[in-house]
Design a protein around this nucleic acid. Structure first.
Lengths: 351, 351
DNA sequence: TTGTATGCGTTATCAT
DNA sequence: ATGATAACGCATACAA
């Protein structure tokens, strides 16, 4: 121990045992007398010894680090409640599993987006990756990761990606269907729908569910206005303004996420509409904004923290399985329950 | 190269040079002929060789990882726009500086909170730490970190902590003063103030600025109602309900952060008040919610992304300085500019 | 039950 | 300009 921090050898020397024995007690290994164990522990305490994770991981080939990657456009505000919820759940899962969480954002429009992610695993900075949309829908990326047999869990992947890698999420098609059924039950007959970004397949599923319900109800094409947004508040504002301006105003407006729904609310307020009397507006996700806005937003609850938590559970499972040489775990998709939560932004149409 | 990934030795062998030479070209070292350099590069490319960061860092004693720690109560929703902004800025800084960002939450009420943070550096998982409130005000923690000479940068530390470790933030006292002056200029004479959590010294500074302006204006104690909240939307709702219910209603309500201001808005709406005609409500931070709420919130802009970005710049500086043995950098506090942004939730009092 | 020896993949320090 | 070799601090297979 030449001035620096104490090493395992210092502990071994002080407690009069071999390095391997110290390693055993540190890792809860078998075959160590209680007396020796205590002696080692005492030395550890006396020296204030801490394992050097760098060394442990180099020797063991692990990192105990999980990477959470999400898309960010530096210009557009991130969907921060969405990501925060996921992150918080993942963080909690990591704490329980003894992992650390490495955040990684990549601009979804940059050229080397895939390379940046691949490099993370090639350079051995983490043992596994949690991918959020739209990366969780990038089958090419998924396959590259699989080739390196890097454990991966996708958040809300679309149908195609679900066959390539494991994932967690709600059943978005059913969620879209149920929300629409609810609006139908309220008596609405003219609809507006603001979709999310292209390529976010799970959000697209929401739209599919909407179409199914609409078709079943026999609503004609003339009575539905569809717009494509990009999940941001601003796109909700702008598209709603467009919808309200075109004369053929719907009585119900369904948005593919809460941020856009809040934007819609904003736009409607601006032109003096009363919500929900003049227009019902609903969203998806049940992020915290939906509760703090006025009127409180009717939306579909997607348990983001649970999803983030479950994602690390799944990935840790896969990492362990990978080590036991029992072969890779089969790909699977975990469905967590959603729920339409009725608040005050939707009501029967009036007038 | 026995089946696993190629190592530096494989590259050395293929290009017919020594390991050290490969290391030189990889790290842009001097003393290597251009011809050799090309040969090595070609081998690297052919083998698809990637540096194993684990090994590099063990050998070099670095990790190229920064830890960002923030408080979380599992029960209360996190102040996610606040943290997201910081995180996004930090992430961008990390990308530019070649660092990775490790997220770490710790329950601020748990016993071992300090130990959890210390362990992060003792086990050498990161080269430096960015602390957010209230940890950025924990002088004991700061000193323990300094003893381990772990580079630290605090986000919005209070006056005491500013002397112990470097930090970044706005001048909260002046911000509080200016906001209050603005309300005064609007003609308000009866104030309500909802403070943040105790121990968040920077938020407390906001309150000091408020008191200074109030005193200067000669407003009497009878005309100011002060409550202590905890930064959450809910506390804003509850405390505002209490304030509105006590008869002596203020015409202006200042909240120590936006979330509470939004809660105040919610509460006011609920009892049928018109904002800002019946009551002016303002916040602090200018998080995205303040723009999407109705009416748009008058607040103080705190450039969170810039602060997060600046924090990693500062810490990277300190890490580099630490390596060059030129002695530790002096403690300093970087003030970034704030700005009161006037939107629609505040107006002259009416009636 | 415990100790020995070797490997992990780099960087860094000397030689040459 | 290049090469040999020693750290770096731990895990682990194998020997005792």
């Amino acid at each position: 121990m030449r001035g620096g921090k104490p090493t395992i050898d210092d502990v071994a020397a002080l407690s009069g045992v071999a390095r391997a024995t110290v390693s055993r007690v540190l890792n809860g290994g078998p075959n160590v007398r209680e007396e020796v164990r205590q002696r080692v522990l005492k030395a550890v305490d006396k020296l204030q010894y801490k394992v050097n994770m760098q060394a442990r991981f180099l020797a063991g080939g692990k990192t105990q680090v999980l990477g959470l990657v999400y898309a960010s456009d530096l210009d557009s505000e991130p969907n921060s409640f969405y990501h925060s919820g996921l992150e918080l759940g993942a963080l909690r899962g990591c704490a329980e599993a003894g992992f650390q969480l490495l955040m990684h954002t990549v601009n979804q429009h940059s050229l080397g987006k895939t390379a940046k992610i691949i490099e993370l695993v090639d350079s051995r900075r983490c043992d596994g990756l949690i991918l959020t949309p739209p990366f969780s829908d990038d089958c090419d990326l998924l396959r590259e990761l699989e080739a390196r047999n890097c454990p991966v869990v996708c958040i809300s992947p679309g149908l195609a990606a679900q066959k390539v890698a494991s994932g967690v999420g709600i059943d978005d098609e059913v969620a879209g269907y149920e929300m629409t059924r609810y609006m139908l039950s309220l008596g609405h007959k003219k609809f507006g729908f603001i979709k999310g970004l292209e390529g976010h397949l799970s959000a697209e599923e929401r739209y599919s569910g909407f179409r199914r319900a609409i078709a079943e109800a026999g609503i004609g094409e003339a009575d539905v206005t569809v717009m494509r947004g990009n999940f941001t508040f601003r796109s909700g504002v702008d598209l709603t303004a467009a919808i309200l301006g075109n004369g053929h105003r719907p009585s119900a407006l369904i948005c593919a996420n809460d941020d856009m729904a809040v934007g819609a609310l904003f736009s409607a307020h601006k032109v003096g509409l009363n919500i929900p009397q003049d227009l019902s507006i609903v969203g998806f996700d049940d992020t915290p904004v939906s509760e703090i806005i006025w009127p409180p937003l009717t939306t579909v609850n997607q348990p983001l923290k649970t999803i983030g938590y479950r994602a690390v559970e799944m990935i840790v499972e896969r990492i362990k399985a990978g080590k036991t040489a029992s072969g890779p775990l089969p790909v699977r998709f975990d469905v967590v329950p959603h729920k339409v939560v009725m608040r005050e932004s939707a009501s029967p149409p009036q007038g």
